[in-house]
Design a protein around this nucleic acid. Structure first.
Lengths: 76, 76
DNA sequence: ATGTGACTCTAAGTCCGTC
DNA sequence: GGACGGACTTAGAGTCACA
């Protein structure tokens, strides 16, 4: 369920920044609808995409992965 | 050059564990030739693949990403 | 401002092999 | 044991129209 966890984390971080999917998409060079796919767990990003998103969210990529680890531990 | 950095890190961690590409591939459920592609910087993994590799390498996925960040900072 | 379906295109990942 | 190639299948990257 890593896709879903990533989606949850992404949405949470985005909302913490108070920006829209549209804004995040634009500033990371990704399509708005693609952000939507990620947040709904319908896509799993490559690490390149992870780095792009992290930059706009003002987080280290490793911090985002770390959040994922926490969710992932309590589930398999 | 994120692909190249990931390849370097992967190779380093694998050799530290003293296992072959074949072994890493088998234990992570990935193809041996794909491990080779990753190490040579010809492919970039998804985060799902990252988690699979990290497990066999006995590292946290975030630790691996962290190593990447260090390499990446001094280059763009 | 977002969800969703229906795409196309490219890259992830596999499987065969040779050197 | 690993580099490298070809041919392949699957899934991510990226876009658009519409609700």
């Amino acid at each position: 369920m890593l896709e879903n966890f990533f989606g949850q984390v992404l949405k949470k971080l985005r909302e913490e920044r108070g920006i829209s999917q549209e804004n995040l998409g634009h500033n990371s060079g990704l399509d708005r609808t693609y952000i939507s796919l990620l947040e709904r767990g319908l896509r799993v990003p490559t690490i390149v995409t992870l780095f792009k998103l992290a930059k706009v969210l003002d987080k280290k990529p490793s911090e985002i992965i770390s959040l994922l680890e926490n969710l992932n531990e309590n589930s398999d």
